[in-house]
């Protein structure tokens, strides 16, 4: 009797908890979306339904200009840094899981650093590193390079390698290494073994890592701000600067677009997850 009362109470508490969680999660999102359609100049005051802010957003050259608008910059940075980080991160994961070499422990520990150190520290490190590198290149190597898109890409690669390699490693660790031995026993060279057995097995991990890298790159404000130079304003950095200049509901519109893009990415990630569990079921 008392037991069932207790379960009833605890169920009610849990239910209430769920409601709170959902309110905290989704109310801000809802408010954001609703006010992106509000006709009033003040954020948070309803002024009738309008698409004006989306229009203003589309007309804003700094945001949408082909090639050097913030959206394009963000996409370029994300695409390039993701591809490079996925290749390097996967290689790092393979070397750590499949080979034994001198200094492996140290390499292993250092690889996690970008995940645990605060963004601000990472940003400042990048800032100092690039200014030193620029001076060095200028005085000793005799060529000039300046902070810009390249430095942003490099900084994004730097933190994304860690995330990719962690995800890929988890997948590799779960893979039966006897599969690789079986392949070699069946006359596959090392490379063929990788191409026909290892890679298909870790593919879901690689895809997951890529999506994670893409999201992190598209999201990043702090590190980017330190590493960026003129002409390298990404979307989140631009939004951030808009807020400093005074908030208009166009920010809402921009944010909704970013939100939708993120949701699409999450949907893709879930899809990759689905692939992974299919692969798991068959192993």
């Amino acid at each position: 009797m008392t037991d069932s009362v207790r379960t009833q109470t605890s169920q009610r508490v849990l239910g209430l908890h769920a409601v709170f969680v959902y309110v905290f999660f989704y109310a801000p999102i809802l408010i954001l979306v609703v006010f992106s359609f509000s006709g009033d100049r003040l954020v948070g005051r309803w002024g009738g339904f309008t698409f004006d802010w989306y229009g203003e957003f589309l007309d804003n050259e700094q945001l949408t200009a082909f090639h050097d608008g913030a959206i394009w910059t963000s996409l370029k940075v994300a695409a390039v840094s993701t591809v490079i980080a996925v290749v390097l991160g996967t290689l790092a994961a393979l070397s750590l899981e499949r080979f034994r070499f001198r200094g492996q422990r140290v390499f292993d520990a250092l690889l996690y650093l970008p995940i645990i150190i605060p963004d601000v520290t990472m940003g400042i490190m990048m800032l100092i590193f690039f200014s030193e590198a620029i001076t060095f290149a200028d005085t000793y190597l005799g060529f000039e390079f300046a902070k810009g898109l390249k430095t942003v890409v490099i900084s994004h690669i730097a933190f994304n390698i860690s995330f990719v390699s962690v995800v890929v490693r988890a997948r590799l660790a779960g893979m039966d290494s006897r599969l690789e031995e079986a392949a070699m026993d069946l006359y596959a060279t090392r490379w063929q073994t990788f191409a026909h057995v290892t890679f298909p097995q870790i593919l879901p991990g690689v895809l997951g890592g890529a999506l994670l890298a893409l999201t992190l790159s598209l999201d990043d404000v702090v590190v980017t701000q330190f590493a960026a130079g003129p002409g390298a304003t990404t979307l989140p950095v631009f939004v951030f600067s808009l807020i400093r200049r005074g908030v208009t509901p166009m920010i809402n519109a921009v944010s909704v677009v970013m939100l939708v893009a993120s949701l699409l990415l999450i949907a893709l990630m879930l899809l990759a997850d689905g692939l992974r569990s299919v692969a798991d079921k068959s192993s």
């Binding site: 039966d176 006897r178 599969l179 031995e181 079986a182 392949a183 026909h196 057995v197 298909p200 097995q201 692969a279 068959s282 192993s283």
Partner: peptide
């Protein structure tokens, strides 16, 4: 022929 068979799951 491996003890665990080690068939390629994919």
């Amino acid at each position: 022929v491996f003890q665990s068979y080690a068939l390629f799951p994919h």
